[in-house]
Computed example of a mutant assay.
Amino acid sequence: MPILQRAIELWFHDPACTTPILKLMAELVHNRSQRLQFDVSSPNGILLFRETSKMITTYGNRILTLGELPKEQLYVLKLKGISICFSVLKAALSGSYVNFGVFRLYGDEALDNALQTFVKLLLSVPHSDLLDYPKLSQSYYSLLEVLTQDHMSFIASLEPHVIMYILSSISEGLTALDTMVCTGCCSCLDHIVTYLFKQLSRSGKKRGAPPPQESERFLHIMQQHPEMIQQMLSTVLNIIIFEDCRNQWSMSRPLLGLILLNEKYFSDLRRSIVSSQPPEKQQAMHLCFENLMEGIEGNLLTKNRDRFTQNLSAFRREVNDSMKNSTCGPNSNEMMS
C-alpha cells in the first residue's frame, strides 16, 4: 500500500497511473457479497478505511493543484479520477465493516479527512459537469445518498455555500434523464427533509436535551433560504402531475416531508394549479388534491408515508384522466409558476 500511495504522490497528474490504482482501491473496499467480514474485536476494518482515507486525501489534494484544464482533457485528467474517488468513498462508507464512531472517540482524523476531501473535490466541479458526465453523476449521487442517510450530521455541519451547492445539485438531479440519478436524488432529498422535520419537531418541544450545534446551524440556513426546498417541492409535484414519471414511488417519499415543511407554500401552489385549469375542470382538480391529503397526519412515520404513497398513486391517475379529458389544458410550466 505505501508503494501505491507514493505512486499517487508522484504521478497524480498521469491518469495512466492513477486510474488503475484508484480502481484497485475501489475493488478492495467494495464489500461485494459480504466478502469483507471481520471479528468484532478486529481492527482490520478501521485499518482498511485509514488506508482508503490516505489514498483519497493524497490524490484529492494533489489533483486540485492542476489548475485550469482544456475542456477536452478535463474528464480524462481530472473528473475521471474524482469520480473513482467518490466511488471508493461510497463503497467504504457503506461496506458495513467499519464502526465510524470509533474515529471521533479516539481522535482519529481519517474519516474527517476523507469527508473534507470530498467537499473540496465537489466544489471544484461545476454543476453542469456533474450531470454532463454520466459516470461522475452516478458516483456522486450514490455517495451523497450514503452521506445523507448515515452521516447527516456531517452534511449539517458544512458551510452555508457548500450546503446550498449540494441542495442545488439535488434540485438539478431531480430532472435528470438518468433514472438512477433521479432516484438517488429523491432518496437524498428524503433523508434531508426527514432530518429537517425531526430537528424542527425537537426544537418545538420544550423538554429534552438541546439539539446539537450543527443541527441548529442547518435549520438556520434552511430558514434563511426557504426557496430552495420550495423549488424542489414544485419540481417534484410538476414531474408527478405533468411528466411521464418513471419512478413515482421514489418521488413520493420526499414529497410528503416537503409538503409538511411548506404547508403554506403547498396551499398556494395547489390553488395556483387549480385556478389554472379550465373552469369546468377546477372542481375536479380541487377534489384530487383533497383526496391526496385525505387521512394524512402531520408526521413522517412509515404508516403515514405508505398511506400518502397510495394516495399519490390515485391522485396521479385522477389528474391524468382529468388532463386527458381537457381539450384546452394550459401549459404545465404556467401552472407551476
Score class of each variant (00 low, 15 high):
residue 32 R to A: 15
residue 258 L to G: 02
residue 267 S to C: 11
residue 84 I to N: 00
residue 175 T to W: 00
residue 77 L to M: 03
residue 5 Q to C: 10
residue 105 L to G: 07
residue 247 N to D: 13
residue 125 V to Q: 06
residue 311 N to V: 13
residue 150 D to Y: 14
residue 305 R to H: 14
residue 247 N to K: 08
residue 216 E to H: 06
residue 84 I to W: 00
residue 62 R to C: 01
residue 292 L to V: 06
residue 55 M to R: 03
residue 155 I to F: 01
residue 175 T to F: 02
residue 128 S to E: 15
residue 210 P to N: 06
residue 52 T to F: 08
residue 235 T to A: 03
residue 265 Y to E: 10
residue 24 L to A: 14
residue 206 K to C: 09
residue 231 Q to E: 03
residue 53 S to I: 00
residue 63 I to R: 01
residue 306 D to R: 15
residue 39 D to H: 13
residue 270 R to E: 10
residue 133 Y to A: 09
residue 78 K to G: 04
residue 267 S to K: 12
residue 182 C to M: 11
residue 90 K to H: 12
residue 164 M to L: 06
residue 34 Q to F: 12
residue 330 P to G: 11
residue 137 S to T: 06
residue 306 D to F: 14
residue 253 R to W: 11
residue 272 S to N: 14
residue 201 S to M: 11
residue 20 P to A: 05
residue 332 S to Q: 09
residue 42 S to V: 12
residue 226 P to R: 01
residue 256 L to E: 04
residue 29 V to R: 05
residue 124 S to C: 08
residue 297 E to I: 14
residue 260 L to R: 00
residue 129 D to G: 06
residue 14 D to G: 02
residue 53 S to N: 09
residue 99 N to M: 10
residue 174 L to N: 02
residue 286 H to D: 15
residue 283 Q to P: 11
residue 246 R to C: 05
residue 228 M to F: 02
residue 237 L to E: 03
residue 29 V to Q: 10
residue 324 K to Q: 13
residue 316 R to A: 09
residue 231 Q to P: 02
residue 21 I to W: 03
residue 281 K to E: 14
residue 307 R to A: 13
residue 278 P to R: 10
residue 270 R to Y: 07
residue 269 L to I: 02
residue 248 Q to A: 09
residue 244 D to R: 01
residue 135 K to Y: 13
residue 148 T to Y: 05
residue 194 T to W: 10
residue 270 R to V: 10
residue 199 Q to P: 04
residue 171 S to H: 07
residue 148 T to M: 08
residue 56 I to T: 04
residue 169 S to C: 01
residue 6 R to Y: 06
residue 27 E to Y: 14
residue 113 N to F: 01
residue 67 G to C: 02
residue 91 A to C: 15
residue 24 L to K: 15
residue 134 P to M: 03
residue 224 Q to T: 01
residue 173 G to W: 01
residue 185 C to G: 00
residue 18 T to Q: 00
residue 269 L to K: 05
residue 192 I to G: 02
residue 234 S to R: 12
residue 330 P to M: 14
residue 23 K to T: 15
residue 230 Q to K: 05
residue 115 L to V: 06
residue 99 N to W: 10
residue 256 L to F: 08
residue 50 R to Y: 07
residue 94 S to A: 15
residue 193 V to L: 02
residue 65 T to S: 08
residue 284 A to I: 14
residue 270 R to K: 12
residue 287 L to T: 14
residue 240 I to R: 04
residue 45 G to A: 11
residue 299 N to P: 14
residue 156 A to Q: 06
residue 25 M to L: 12
residue 59 Y to I: 00
residue 297 E to V: 15
residue 112 D to R: 13
residue 234 S to G: 09
residue 199 Q to M: 09
residue 299 N to V: 13
residue 85 C to I: 05
residue 156 A to I: 03
residue 222 M to W: 06
residue 86 F to Y: 04
residue 202 R to D: 12
residue 22 L to Y: 02
residue 185 C to P: 03
residue 312 L to S: 10
residue 95 G to L: 10
residue 209 A to W: 08
